[in-house]
């Protein structure tokens, strides 16, 4: 199957007071037709910059996509003109953000904003557009859509606004939906409503979803495949069951061990020592090496490339490679 979206070696930088920092350092990932892929990692690892890069929405300056390719249905988005991108955004690729309030304009009613969103890609009469919007509000489970149509964003709760955002994103039946932490700002019971809605809509409309989250629980419930990022790089990729059953990268393992579980009793949580490095002072070699329990000399010197290990899995780690096996034995016998 040919992937719908294919990102190769994406490099995105920002000009900051402390000089030029590399937020994405060679990110590669793909999303198949109708597939749900989760992009996970801790805050600042580059998840949002990845999604903004795909849509060519990285604020510039200070940001710049320096290198790489973003193939959507085989065509490089980085080579498109701004008017072409405007066509693609919303029609082919739609996005929903973490904080629905900031993406809805507070001075216009929700209905008028939805009509405008539809109008950008479809020629409809006013009556047709309104009917379409009401249909969409009904689809995303907004009670009393006729009444809500005339309300302003601040009159709605967070969960309601996120429904409107989802409605807006899906009104042109995009092939890919990028959802950047769509439930992080919401309470768990409202999160459950929104995730449930996304699952239902996906069944109905069949779009692919790139779901960005830092919540491993959300990943487990939603994704078919998982891409794990750490400090601007993809460090592991695997089908969801494989990832949870046997995480290959020490960071992924540490992350899974440090989550308190509701269904398991554990006396002591696992931890990852130290802190997430800042962009200005990235460790040499493997960026995880100062925090990694398996690090050896090689790790501090050379960057491990993302390599395929079979069964649709990829990992960027020296563990299990010929050079490291020797080093690993040495450190174990010490």
């Amino acid at each position: 199957m040919k992937p719908l979206l294919e990102i190769e070696n994406l490099v995105t930088t920002f000009d900051t007071e402390d000089g030029c920092v590399t937020a994405l350092d060679g990110v590669s990932l793909s999303v198949g037709q109708g597939e749900t892929v989760a992009l996970v990692g801790e805050s600042g690892c580059g998840k949002s910059v990845t999604s903004l890069s795909i849509l060519r929405l990285v604020p510039s300056p200070p940001g710049k996509v320096e290198a790489g390719r973003i193939l959507f249905e085989g065509e490089d988005l980085l080579a498109k003109s701004e008017p072409q991108m405007r066509e693609i955004r919303g029609r082919d690729i739609a996005m929903i953000f973490q904080e629905p309030m900031t993406s809805l304009n507070p001075v216009f009613t929700c209905g008028s904003q939805l009509i405008e969103a539809i109008g950008q890609h479809q020629r409809l009469t006013a009556a047709q557009a309104k009917e379409k919007v009401l249909e969409m509000l009904r689809l995303v489970g907004i009670p009393l859509p006729d009444q809500r149509f005339d309300e302003y964003p601040h009159q709605m709760s967070g969960g309601m606004r996120q429904r409107v955002m989802i409605g807006m994103a899906l009104c042109c039946a995009p092939k890919l939906l990028i959802a950047d932490e769509p439930t992080t700002a919401l309470d768990v019971t409202i999160q459950a409503q929104i995730l449930d809605l996304l699952i239902k809509l996906k069944k109905k409309m069949g779009m692919a979803i790139l779901l960005i989250t830092h919540d491993m629980g959300v990943v487990a419930e939603m994704a078919e495949r998982v891409v794990v990022m750490y400090a601007g790089k993809v460090i592991e990729e695997a089908p969801v069951r494989e990832l949870f059953r046997a995480p290959a990268h020490p960071y992924t393992r540490g992350l899974l061990d440090s989550i308190p579980r509701l269904d398991v009793r554990e006396d002591q949580l696992g931890t990852i020592p130290g802190n997430v490095p800042s962009l200005g002072s990235m460790p040499s070699g493997c960026r995880f090496h100062p925090r990694c329990p398996h690090a050896c000399g090689l790790c501090a010197e050379r960057v491990p490339e993302l390599r395929e290990t079979g069964g649709g899995r990829k990992v960027a780690c020296w563990l299990g490679t010929p050079g490291m096996a020797v080093a690993g034995e040495r450190s174990a016998s010490r």
Partner: peptide, 25 residues
């Protein structure tokens, strides 16, 4: 009961019935 069932479990092998509460607080 609903609150507990709403929390996503970080284990894809576990299929659960989620109680979806209607509406907002």
């Amino acid at each position: 009961e609903a609150l507990l069932s709403a929390i996503p479990v970080p284990d894809p092998e576990i299929a659960r019935e989620r109680i979806i509460l209607e509406g907002d607080v």
